[in-house]
Each structure stands twice: as C-alpha cells, then as structure tokens.
Design a protein around this nucleic acid. Sequence first.
DNA 1: ACCTCCGGGACCTCCCGTTGGT
DNA 2: ACCAACGGGAGGTCCCGGAGGT
Lengths: 190, 190, 190, 190
Amino acid sequence: MPQINLKEQLVEGATDVFHRQGFNASTVDDIVRAAGVPKGSFYNHFDSKESLALEVAKRYASSTPTDMLAMPGLSPVARVRAHFEFMVERTVRQGLERGCILGNFGTELAAQSAVISRAVRDAFDVWSSGVAMVLEEARELGEIAADVDTQALADFMIDSFEGATARAKVSGNRKPLDHFLEITFTKLLR
Amino acid sequence: MPQINLKEQLVEGATDVFHRQGFNASTVDDIVRAAGVPKGSFYNHFDSKESLALEVAKRYASSTPTDMLAMPGLSPVARVRAHFEFMVERTVRQGLERGCILGNFGTELAAQSAVISRAVRDAFDVWSSGVAMVLEEARELGEIAADVDTQALADFMIDSFEGATARAKVSGNRKPLDHFLEITFTKLLR
Amino acid sequence: MPQINLKEQLVEGATDVFHRQGFNASTVDDIVRAAGVPKGSFYNHFDSKESLALEVAKRYASSTPTDMLAMPGLSPVARVRAHFEFMVERTVRQGLERGCILGNFGTELAAQSAVISRAVRDAFDVWSSGVAMVLEEARELGEIAADVDTQALADFMIDSFEGATARAKVSGNRKPLDHFLEITFTKLLR
Amino acid sequence: MPQINLKEQLVEGATDVFHRQGFNASTVDDIVRAAGVPKGSFYNHFDSKESLALEVAKRYASSTPTDMLAMPGLSPVARVRAHFEFMVERTVRQGLERGCILGNFGTELAAQSAVISRAVRDAFDVWSSGVAMVLEEARELGEIAADVDTQALADFMIDSFEGATARAKVSGNRKPLDHFLEITFTKLLR
DNA sequence: ACCTCCGGGACCTCCCGTTGGT
DNA sequence: ACCAACGGGAGGTCCCGGAGGT
C-alpha cells in the first residue's frame, strides 16, 4: 500500500535536493532517494527532471510569504522592512549555503531551460509588483520622496537581496544580508 | 609543429562556453570544439574540467578592470561611478544572457567545488576592497557621509550589481542594470 | 521482459573473461560482450568492475569442490589425494592457459585492490583449513608422521599446487601439475 | 648534458614499478617518473612498454644468483638449500608484497604477450636446469634416493617456491616461504 | 640522443528515461 | 498507480605512442 502521496514526496525531496545541489548536479536518483520513492515511479508523475524542477520553482515562488506586506497597523515602509527582514531570516534559517532556489535556477538555467527561466522571471515580477505596490502607498503618504520610480526601486531591492543572498552563499556568512537590510532601510529609504 | 598555444585556446574557448552554459551543462567536448583543439589534448594541459574552470575564474577575476577607480581628475565618487558604468556596459556588451562568470560559478558551484568557491569569494573580496578604498577617500573628503561603513557599502554595491546582472540575465533586458546605476548614484551616494 | 537474469549472465561472462585475460586486461566491453548483455546494464548490477571481480572471486572460491575430502570409505591421505587429483583435472579441463582465478587475482591485484586481495587470502585460508583437517585425521591415524604440522603442510600443498598451476600456464603443458601430484603423494606423504 | 645512461635509468625505474604494480597497472608515465627521465625519451630506447618489460624480465632472470649452487665445500643438497634460503631472504628483503617479477609477469601476461611469456618460461627452465644439475650430483653421491627424477624435482621445488612467494604476497607474511624451506629440506630431501 | 607538446582512441562510469508486469 | 530491471548513449578521464624541433 503506497504512501499518501508520491507526487508530493517527490516535490518535497526535489526541492531539498535542487536547493542544495542545483539542477544539473542533482540526479534523478538523488531525488528519488531523498523522496524515498522508487525510481520507476518518477515518470508517472513528471515528464522529466525539468518539469519537476518547474513545479519546484512554482511552489517555491508561491511560498514566498507576502503577508507582511499587508500587515495592518504598520506604515508602508515598515511593512516592506518587515517583509525583507523575514526574508533574510528565512534565508539564514534554510541555510546560507542553499541560497534562493529562484535565484539559483535563474542563474544556472537561463540558457538551458526556457520554461524554467520564464517561471523564474514571472516569480520575480510578481514579487516585485507586490513590493512596488506598498512602496507606492509609501510615496502617496509622503513616507518616501514623491519622485521615486517605485517599480524600479522594488526591482532594485529584490535584486540587491538576491545579490546579497548569492554572496552569502559563497562567503558562508550572513553579513551581506545584514548589510543589505541596514543600507536599504537606513540609507536608501531614509 | 603545433598551434601557437593550445592551452591558451582552451582557456579562451572554455571561458566562452562556461560563460554561456555554466559549468555542469558544458561538456569537455563542447569546450574542445569551441577551442578548436582535439579532445585528447585536453588533459595534457589541465587535470580536470574543474581545474580549467578554476583557471577561467581566476583570469576573469583579474580581467576586471579597476583602472577607472584610479582615474586622475575625478572625484572619488565619480570614479566609483565610472567604474560601475563601465562594468554595466561590459556586461551588456558581453551579452546579458551570459551574466558574470564569477556570480554564475559562485551560485552553481558553491556546494560542488570548494576550490572554485574559494576563488570566487576571494575575487569578490579583492574587488570589494578596491571599491571600499575609493569610498574611504570619498568619506575623508566629505563627499559621502562621515558615518558610513565604506567596506559594507562597497560590498552592498557589488552584491547589488551582481543581483542586477543575474536579474538582467533571466529577464533578457538591461533595465535592472540601469536601475542599479540610477538608484545607487542618485539616491544612495547622494 | 528482460532475460532471466542479467546479473547471472554478467557473472558468468566475467568469470570467463577474467579467467582468460586477467583483471586489468579485461575491459567492461569485453565482459558485456561475453555475457551478451548491453553495456548500459552493467552498472545496474555492479558498482564497478572491481566489485564484479570480487563477486567472481567469491563464487570461484565457493565452487572449489571439497566433497572429495569427505568421501566415505577412503583413508584420509587417499581423500586428500583424490581432492588434488580432481583439482588438477579441473585445471587441465578448464584450460591450462587460464590458471586459477584466485591465484591470478592474488598476483595481479595484491597492490591494487584491498578487497579482492582479502577475498583471495580468505579463500586460500578456508581451503587450507579444510585440507589440514583431513591431514590431522591422517596424523591421528598414523597415516602420516606424528610430528608434522598439518596446517603448515596443507598450506605448502596448496602453494605448490598454485605454483604448478602458474607454471603450467606459462609453459603450456600439464607436466608441472603431474609432478606436483607425483612428488607430493609418493615422496612427501610417503 | 644528459644523464649517464637514460636507458639504464629506464630499466631500473621500470623494474621497480613493474615489480610493485604489475604490467597493466603501470603506465608509461609512472615509469618515466620513477626513472626520472622525460616522457619523450622513452621511445628512443624502447619500441613499446612491452619491449621494456621484456628487457626487465630478462635482466631479472639473469640476476637470479646461482653461485650458491656451486659453492665449494658444501654437499649438493646443502648447496641447493643455501640457494633457496638465499632466494627466500631476497624475496623478503625486496618486500613480500612485490613477489617475483617472473612469476608475476607469467601469471599476468600469459594470454597477452607471447614474447614475455616465452622469456619467463625460458628463465624458469634455465633456473630449473641449474638446480637439477646439482640434484643430479646429489643423486650420484647417494645424498638423495637413486630413483628420483631430478629434473621433475627441481621443477617442483621452483614451482613450490613461486607458489609460496605468491601466497606470501597476498597474505602479507613470510610464513609460506618458511614452510616451503622447512618442508622441502626436512621432509622431502630427507 | 633528447624532449616538449600533442592526439586518436578507448576506458570506466553514470545518467535519464523506458519497459512491461502487477 | 506503482515499481524493478533495464539500456542507449554520452560524460570525464587517461593512456600509449608520435611528431618535429634542438
């Protein structure tokens, strides 16, 4: 009698393995081993390693917690700050050496998989829009300067966060992430 | 008598192939084909694909042009700006979809190759020190606030630049890089 | 549906190939061709050429027929003689130029494979113990002198047999084996 | 200005490497490194790895010290005994794990190199003739029984010695060689 | 004679995806 | 849906020997 849900296990195992090793360095065997499912079951649920990675990317994207951005009782900038502080903590908690799956996939697979690149791009765009919307609020409330391009600023913040995550990954320490927070919220957003 | 320098051709071919496809997705065959050298010659010059990648990383790192940082007649901040403007142009010129070899290797190989990770980390540290030194000048001249941690700021700028490069890579357009420049030099450094 | 048992075919093919050519001179291609299995299937059954060789060595060892040593109705010395006579005939029948897999592996792989060396050593020790036990019986029955070290004698007989096998292999004739029998059972054991 | 004798160094280096690793497991690179000569020089002196191995085998054969067999003042059997005692000591001194080059080559290369097999066979035959001659003396002097086939006995002794050497090699201890001496000279030759 | 650089070819290993029975 | 066994094809590595200048 089979497990509750083979597909679910596969996605979870793959998330872990891809997160740690990247796409090309992870074999289907690594994944099924991590998921605890037999090799042969893999292709009942996914057409290919790539389509599993796509699923992983999509879930990871939708698991990005944006609720802080809507937290009541906080000013817009405070909400953005809370959001990124949470993101930093999550990144640290998951293990610096893992980085961000989306960033990792984007960098590794840009030339290799159009569908994954597209998913990554879309995920960043959605995330960015969410942040931009709050920054727009901040602009309207006068919390930040009236002339800022809020979409550009949101993109910049996300890119900086991803850059800091990648740097933390190679460096093995969280300083880049702390600097990101410090500089963004004390120098950039006043 | 053989080519002028098979080893040199190998490094150049590999730089191109790794830059475009990443480490794991590049086969030794891809590399020797790009380099125009016979497969059998590969291991007369490098112990492994990894050691060739290490050489590529080191050369790429030392090819980062830092002369703008010392350009006479410009204020420190103007020199930093000229430097990053050049880096952006170079990145665009080389092809957005390639990104930065150092950033790419760092992200892809952090868990896979200690030697390459180390080289990448060192390269970023050296680069960052160079930028920090100029920012320190700026601080002493009062061009930027007296209380800034110039090393942290240099790191942040580099991480943001790398993040923007990665985003430009997946997105296929240079906007992230332009935003990086705009925001960094009009909002962050006054 | 596949063959009855690919793994079994592999072991049999490998036994034959290793027996004839030795370990290093046998390629995985030689083996799969002899076994009639596709190359790609090899590593579904064995981790490496070495682990296949280990399996071959173990099976060869346990295929050494020791039933003569317990044959009822014969004196202990007669049983030992029957045993070695059988071993000689088997060696001749299998083809002098093949020698003994255990001896071959021991000589070729002593410096190269600890696991195989160990298996070979153990196989000889087990074999020797079996022979020694019967010699001990002979000693107790007064069939051989009371002061002989039966374990040492058993070892000597096996080493001489292996030496004769190796000599027969290079020489291409069975004389060494016949002399082994003649001298051992008419001069040594009276 | 070159070394005294590149060829000589090659033979010496090769002897050492082949003795330790066998023929197939030794690469030409291993050999030139051990010999301290550049790779390209190899083929100025030998047509192939095989022809170098042949030279090694021939020298090793002629280096077998047979002077004990003619030592004045000792009875024939005592001379044979002195000879084998010396051989045992030499084998131990050179390192049990190396075995005897002749025996090693014979076992490993019987199916692979006719010329080396031939050299090995001849070497054993010459050696055996030498021993047989002394045993013949012993027979004529009544030191051993009149009815022994001295050639067969000499062969047997050599095969036993080689078998013991091979066993000592896998087992890592000299016991087989000591038993060979003990049993041969106290039980077999009275 | 010497030696640096080279290269055709193959070796062991492994990977992704399939097959076919349950 | 599940899964054990399978296999076509390639991947990285390395080896023996040669080419051609000194």
